[in-house]
Amino acid sequence: MNGIHDMGGMQCMGPIVREENEPRFHEEWEGRVFGMFFTNFAEGHFNVDMFRHAIERMGPAEYLETSYYEHWLHVYETVLVERGILTQAEIDEKIASLRQAGD
C-alpha cells in the first residue's frame, strides 16, 4: 500500500537527530504500550500484518505528528474496536473516569 509511511527517498525531512544514552522508553506509558503488543498478539487480537496495516491506514498528517508508540496505541484502539473486543464508548468512558480520579 502506497502512503505516507513509504518514506524511502523522500526529501526535506530535516536532519537526523540522535540522542546520546537514549533510554529504552522515554515515558512510562511507552513501555506499557510496547508490552501490550505481546499480550494482544498472544491473545490473538491481531497478527503482525494487521498491526502494520492499522498504522498504514492512519491519516498522513496524524502519522507525521504522532510519535512511534502513539502509532502502536492507535493500532490497539483501532483493531480492538474493529474486532469487537472493546467499544469506543468503553474506551472513552474509561479515559474520562481515570482523568476524574486523577484530579
Partner: peptide, 19 residues
C-alpha cells in the same frame, strides 16, 4: 496519550485479557 494507554491496559485487565 498516557491516559489512553492506561485506559486500554485497565479495560483489558478488567476483561481478563491482560496481566
Amino acid at each position: 496519550t498516557a491516559m489512553r494507554a492506561k485506559a486500554l491496559e485497565t479495560l483489558l485487565t478488567e476483561k481478563g485479557l491482560l496481566d
